[in-house]
């Protein structure tokens, strides 16, 4: 079996010697996994993922990245393999133009200049930043600034990509760019950790969900199982996507064997009820 790319061994994080943010979390993340990390603000999810790129070190326990203990490692050493896109892009952006921002990472990795420019251009195209290439990152609106934050991490092509609330404040068009990013990262074999409250996004893109509550990891399962567990969802005040809620109500009445995670999935289930084509689905 492949080795985990990230492994937490009984990780604790206690801020200022008194505030326990993460309690005894053990977790293995394998290369290529797409994982959602959910829970309320203050549940410990951001604290947990900040251990993966060395921004935080455990108070107790160990975090291994590619088998190496992060304890003695610096953020700079880890940033080539673990990219972290902050929830607030202001914590991350510093260059004077979007172009310069997108060149910084690859140049810092020591890549040749033509590769630096190539990565910059690919990121501009993928994230739709062409009209903003000469703008100062702080002079563009918050949602687009977040895309610049994602783009700048993408230029580094880290093996592990951590997205913290990527769709917060985004409208449907920019949210779609986030979907495409996660799909592309999956196709490229990257490991993606997505900390999010956006259940529609998670239901459609992740294969595994880690649920945090009050500094504890309380569940680690497939999204279909997590969303079907009303007690679990209720205890974290999270609501499943509307289509999942609908199919969950039908499942609870014994009418459906399992919930749907997306509208597309639900079409296969419902089409036959209305004399429509099931298109070889699961109906």
């Amino acid at each position: 079996m492949t080795n985990p790319v990230i492994e937490c061994q009984n990780v604790w994080h206690i801020y200022g010697g008194s505030v326990t943010a993460v309690q005894d979390v053990s977790l293995k993340i394998y290369p290529g996994e797409i994982i959602g990390i959910i829970g309320q603000n203050g549940s410990g999810k951001t604290t947990l993922v900040k251990h993966f790129n060395g921004l935080l070190k455990p108070t107790k326990g160990k975090v291994l990245v590619n088998g190496r203990d992060t304890g003695p490692m610096r953020v700079q050493e880890l940033s080539a393999s673990v990219g972290y896109v902050f929830q607030n892009p202001n914590h991350q952006l510093f260059a004077r133009t979007v172009e310069a921002e997108l060149e910084f990472g690859p140049r810092n990795l020591g890549l040749p200049e033509d590769e630096v420019i190539d990565r910059r251009e690919k990121a501009i195209e993928f994230f739709g930043l062409e009209p903003l290439r000469h703008s100062h990152p702080y002079r563009i609106g918050f949602p687009l600034r977040k895309l610049v934050g994602m783009a700048s991490v993408y230029t580094m092509r880290p093996a592990v990509f951590i997205l913290d609330e990527p769709t917060t404040g985004q409208d449907n068009v920019t949210t779609r760019i986030v979907y495409r990013l996660i799909h592309r990262l999956r196709d490229e074999g990257s490991t993606v950790l997505c900390v999010a409250h956006d259940m529609i996004l998670l239901a459609e893109v992740v294969e595994r969900m880690v649920v945090m509550r009050d500094s504890l990891l309380i569940a680690d399962a497939r999204p279909r199982e997590v969303f079907s567990d009303r007690a679990l969802m209720g205890s974290t005040h999270l609501l499943p996507p509307q289509i999942t809620e609908l199919t969950l109500r039908l499942k609870e009445q014994g009418k459906l064997p399992q919930v749907s995670l997306s509208v597309s999935e639900s079409l296969d289930v419902f089409a036959p009820l209305f004399g429509g084509k099931s298109e070889g689905g699961q109906a």
Partner: peptide
């Protein structure tokens, strides 16, 4: 560039993509 509630999209697509009779 906007979306509609998931259940609305579901009914719309059943009619338009799956020849269903909503």
């Amino acid at each position: 560039g906007l979306r509609v509630p998931q259940v609305t999209e579901m009914a719309y697509r059943l009619e338009h993509d799956r020849s269903a009779h909503w």
